[in-house]
Design a binder for these strands. Structure first.
Lengths: 370, 370
DNA sequence: TCTATTGGTTGGAGCGCTCTAATGCTGTAG
DNA sequence: CTACAGCATTAGAGCGCTCCAACCAATAGA
């Protein structure tokens, strides 16, 4: 249970502690003979450097702290993948902490992360107040992902929610839809831009926006649909604020005897793994999540190593992923057939395209070389 | 960008550095007057202790390292919640790292975690070789979750996969099913116990086991079903190795014109959030995930603080969650109607029960008090 | 009055490392 | 043969903290 120190390695290799230190940081100014001797001794003792002592002595850190607001959300997992990729290739380690979307827990997580004096911090969609962020930004570089900020000391990486919503509306309009409702994300992060994008896109097409208040959950999506049906204001297409909401909307539609996409088209937002399931096969808006992570890590490293001080604001382009929940509106194919009647049986074309999309998105296989 | 040190606080409060240290660790042997003065000075300077220096000096750590093999899997998020809960309440912090289910990355993550010299390590379903684990176990206490080990220095927390599979089989048998296939998890973690449990439960009921080789993905579930259909060996009920596999199976069944659960019942395993979606509403086996985390943290702390040395092996009981993908077999209701014909339209009872279950499992609401 | 005792406080060593400046050691030029 | 690079190596201070032993009243006991 006791790890050897540099001193032990030095003793065994018959050199000084400082020389071991140089070898460990693979300095070029060490003779090959000594280097080999030191590495051999280290190997034999099972020595590996003590990151904390190193960081304390050097007054620098090779650690990037990442606060994930919600570990349950796979969205963040992919962002972390991107961060990890860049960090690793630049010789940095990452440590993760989570705030569970509670401001109190997040604050604690932030404190905990700060106490390790990392080189910088990446906050993924944090819910802590802006003051807490700018206070932390006085101590180290901070990058915000999926949350905006006007503080000049922090960088931000966001997707262009307005553009994403516009893509969805354009797609639906091109299919022939005229009545398209937006199930709004309310207080949720990024709900604002998506709503604005929806409204302006609708108006650009000369259509009347119909914003329905909802939330980022499948229950909320279902509720919103039931409300629309009972009000008699159900449109031919729905743009949900995210994929969960969309899946809830689809269930409620099917429960009401309506078919998706035959009677109503539904578009999600986020392209979560949920959307890609062949059982769901949801048309949705994809955000370049891994790219978020890569850019965040890069931005942080620019501040840490290159001493950049002007803030960076990235606004990434989302893209449309067409799957099987969107189709031309029923009225444009048939005159006025009751939308409550199930469509004809055996739509093998539909299931065929599902399979096709699924294959395209199929998971990477394990490489046999590893 | 430069944080104050204890020295600064001591100077400002007019006391020694050692006294500040005592206050920071809220030692009882400090007079109230001094304590107040120190806290005031610390507050004014925005001081907070340097965790690394503290850990270095005290040769102890209040950090628990957690390696999550796959951040994309929400299963682990709930385990982390449990760990976090216990750790926090015992005054420990957690740092997380991820291995992305690649042995090489996991090894690196392990190294990174170890370099912080945490008090102990919790590995969630790691894929690194057992030797790497037992080597790490020489340096600090280790708890394994969802992976077994015979090394006497590591504790393990697992679910009883045999029992879970038995629960599923019993449920299906009680509904009247006689032909029940198991879509096997192959190499996957915990696939073995589940398969064994399935086989023994079937035999206990005097039924013939039908193990179909598959994997932990929805694509694999769909493939297995297509194979069964083309072989003409499709049973009346399916026990999948996990929820993803089950969802893939359901899609393939529906694509083939079969209805779930009217024609074929499907049971998943894991009770992921996916299963709870009203659109999926999957009957499945629940594992007490947060409990995994709590027990893991507890076990670790017992070793860290109480010096326990005998290994602990927890085997937790899974439970059955009945939703809407299981029902009595078609043959027990109708004589021999072709299972390829869709069932009667408008089964409002089915959608009704979906809603009921969904409400019961509905997410916690945000408390207005916060 | 002198010595114990107690509770609060402090200096200093040291945790495992890095970093600077100094050291020793060649080899080559003067 | 001395001087001076130039290079590999090392002693030693110090990072921010903890911990131990010592210290210093102030009170209690003899």
């Amino acid at each position: 249970m006791v790890r050897p120190t540099m001193e032990d390695v030095a003793l065994r290799a018959g050199v000084s502690r400082a020389l071991v230190s140089l070898v460990m940081r693979n300095s070029p100014k060490v003779s090959e003979a000594r280097r080999a001797a030191v590495l051999k001794a280290a190997e034999e003792l099972g020595y590996s450097p003590h990151a904390m002592a190193r960081s304390l002595a050097s007054r620098t850190s090779t650690v990037l702290g990442v606060m994930v607001s919600d570990l349950h959300n796979a969205f963040f997992a992919e962002v972390v993948d991107g961060i990890d990729e860049v960090a690793r290739e630049q010789g940095f380690d990452i440590i993760i902490n989570t705030g569970g979307r509670s401001p109190a827990r997040e604050r604690r997580a932030l404190e905990s992360l700060l106490s390790f004096r990392p080189a910088g911090l990446i906050l993924l969609s944090p819910v802590v107040p802006a003051t807490a962020i700018s206070k932390a930004a006085e101590q180290l570089p901070i990058v915000l992902v999926a949350r905006s900020s006007r503080v000049s000391t922090v960088d931000t990486i966001n997707d262009d929610g307005e553009q994403g919503a516009r893509l969805a509306v354009d797609h639906l309009v091109s299919l022939g839809h005229k009545r398209i409702a937006h199930l709004d994300g309310g207080e949720g992060t990024q709900a604002g831009p998506r709503r604005r994008g929806y409204v302006t896109a609708m108006e650009a097409h000369g259509l009347v926006p119909q914003v329905v208040s909802s939330e980022y959950t499948d229950a909320a999506g279902a509720r919103a649909i039931r409300r629309l049906i009972s009000d008699g204001t159900l449109p031919t297409a729905i743009l949900s604020c995210n994929d969960f909401n969309a899946v809830g909307a689809i269930s409620a539609l099917e429960d009401a005897g309506l078919r998706v996409p035959a009677d109503v088209s539904v578009v999600g937002y986020d392209n979560t793994s949920l959307a890609a399931l062949r059982h769901v096969s949801l048309t949705t808006i994809d955000q370049p999540r891994a790219e978020f992570g890569r850019l965040a890590a890069l931005a942080l490293l620019q501040r840490v190593r290159d001493g950049r001080t002007e803030p960076v604001r990235h606004l990434l382009n989302p893209s449309l992923v067409v799957r099987n929940t969107t189709a031309p509106p029923a009225t444009s194919r048939r005159s006025s057939g009751s939308p409550l009647l199930p469509a004809a049986e055996g739509d093998s074309a539909g299931s065929g395209s599902r399979t096709a999309d699924f294959q395209a998105k199929s998971p990477e296989r394990r490489s046999r070389d590893h």
